[in-house]
Design a protein around this nucleic acid. Structure first.
Lengths: 348, 348
DNA sequence: CTGAAAGCGCTTACAG
DNA sequence: CTGAAAGCGCTTACAG
């Protein structure tokens, strides 16, 4: 079934069929009804490739999930608890607005080229990228080609440096404020020996959370201890090893600030296996408030990142940018919120 | 940049450029190299719409996630712990093979039409459907149009009844065997008062697990008790309410067989709030072995469903079916495995 | 081995 | 208001 068939059966030309499908204003109601009747009767829907080729939008957005495992290891990071709800929220929001979503995994630096390729092949009108590392040339290229891009968790300054002008929006959460809030909560609880299980330095949130932690210590006259400065890279396995190594030293802080919940939960797992009680022997806090955070025992005190709102905002922005061809770079930063549960206790 | 540009710069015709891109055998190495050089220099990649319109595949598969909330409620079921890893595994497997994935949510019976529409619009070469309810006419329609379909968790008999012939594969897990295994494990532990928190009857796995449970009781001379036959519908909220109601009766079974882990974890949550200890006061088992199952305390004893393998198999099948135009219906049933953890204790 | 040409199914100036 | 025609960027018989 093609528009020509519809045209014939409705007694009009393909042009007219196209006009009613695309809601042209200069089609009399009578004609419109006549054509719609045939369209509905046969459940006709225009070939998307033909439409796209003729200059229409694809009504598809790309969602690129970057999860680069360590050193080119090809281990797939299944069940990343941050990405999952994000993916679902993007899909749901887009689908609600009648837009299709092409989801793509990026597992290596080479894979970044896929983003550019998908644009060149005209498979989508715009893209959302989550989990990007810094200094990715492809993003600048894509932006310079004028394709709309929403990037989640990226330094606003770096974006400006990387791409002079482009249709780019960046969405972050208030990682600085969130970190300060939770560290203050720990200080108020009487903790001074505050260790950190840091995220990826290559990641904006990883850097911001780390920096805010360091600043809070300094502002409160606490000397940071190198042996409590653990590198977890936002990767469960690495976080686990770091905690195992820490335990071996026999010298624990009174609380460990984990830069995301996945690492916090891994840490709790390791501690539990070593019979170190949370929060009695050591307090633990995380960041993100992913679903399992409220499920583990003790329930994890953490900072809620509005993953759903970020996803929704990303879709809204990307759809706006598709309509608006002005080349602007805009930044949004969504609120975080301290969520106090059971994984910390008063100290001293 | 289009094929004509490449042709000009390589000193050949568009036909030849097309031939090298599509790996025709009758292109001399010399010519091929010459063309490839220009293609690589400009990072040329053919317009996917034009290719599709000219008769090539779209190299895209559709993944439809059906999660119909109760009675047309529009509540989005975020973070369904079964779907998340499934989606990720499908995307990863497909991307590894150079295939794009269009992911779509189905939230209402009306939404099922989206599957047909996406095929009619020629947005994809084949589709994978997970979470379907029974008796969905759209699936039969799509199959009768000859589009390849892989359906996860569906009755093989119903498929045959619904669609006489089509390019359809069904993938299930061994829910019957798995249920029998875990119920036997409970019987061996000495339990006789075995309640069930059942899944959706509209779902194949929901029915099979329920039936196997009933049969196991009967085969072991245990009279089923209506007050321990709870309906959870595979939906957390409903499961929670069912458990709350059960607790109110003051008459608990010694173990509750929850037809999936999401409901089991919800049940544990409710019990914990009511200060009923698992496994001391009541044992709990689940089904699926989703990631949080090993994280909750006590860790959940359950039946592992090979979600990753199912996803991978689905992609492999769907890609095979795209190449093979023979209309066959095939069924695959993957192994489950009992995973014993800490949520059950010996009885009597 | 390779180019010219037709065709895929749309949309949209253009002309009336 | 509406149709004929050109054009979107490919692929692939066809002819040589």
């Amino acid at each position: 079934m093609k528009s020509e068939d519809i045209a014939r059966m409705a007694g009009v030309s393909r042009s007219t069929v196209s006009r009613v499908i695309n809601n042209y204003s200069n089609v009399p109601d009578e004609t419109r009804r006549k054509v719609m009747k045939v369209i509905e009767k046969y459940h006709y829907s225009p070939n998307s490739s033909a439409r796209a080729l003729a200059g229409k939008k694809t009504d598809t957005i790309g969602l690129f999930i970057v999860s680069i495992a360590e050193k080119g290891s090809s281990t797939r990071v299944y069940q990343n608890n941050y990405f999952s709800p994000f993916i679902e929220a993007v899909i749901d929001t887009a689908n609600e607005r009648g837009v299709y979503v092409l989801v793509h995994s990026i597992f290596s630096v080479r894979d970044y080229a896929k983003i550019k390729q998908a644009f060149i092949e005209k498979r989508m009108d715009a893209g959302i990228i989550v989990g990007t590392e810094k200094d990715i040339g492809v993003m600048a290229e894509v932006a310079s080609m004028g394709y709309p891009l929403v990037i989640i968790d990226y330094s606003p300054e770096d974006i400006l440096r990387l791409v002079g002008k482009g249709r780019i929006s960046v969405i972050n959460s208030m990682d600085d404020k969130g970190t300060r809030e939770i560290i203050k909560y720990l200080l108020d609880l009487g903790h001074k020996d505050i260790g950190i299980l840091a995220g990826r330095d290559n990641t904006y949130s990883g850097r911001v959370r780390y920096k805010a932690y360091k600043e809070m210590l300094a502002e409160n006259g606490i000397e940071p201890r190198i042996e409590w400065d653990l590198k977890g890279e936002f990767i469960k396995k690495i976080a686990e090893q770091a905690v195992i190594d820490l335990i071996k030293t026999g010298n624990l802080p009174t609380v460990l600030f984990c830069c995301n919940d996945d690492m916090a939960i891994s840490a709790m797992d390791v501690l539990s296996r070593e019979n170190i009680k949370v929060p009695d022997d050591i307090s633990i806090v995380g960041f993100d408030d992913i679903m399992p955070a409220s499920l583990v025992k003790p329930a994890l005190t953490t900072v809620r990142v509005p993953i759903y709102d970020i996803a929704k905002k990303a879709v809204e922005l990307v759809l706006e940018m598709i309509e608006d061809t002005a080349r602007n770079i805009s930044t949004y930063t969504l609120e975080t919120r301290l969520v106090i549960r059971d994984s910390c206790k008063k100290h001293g």
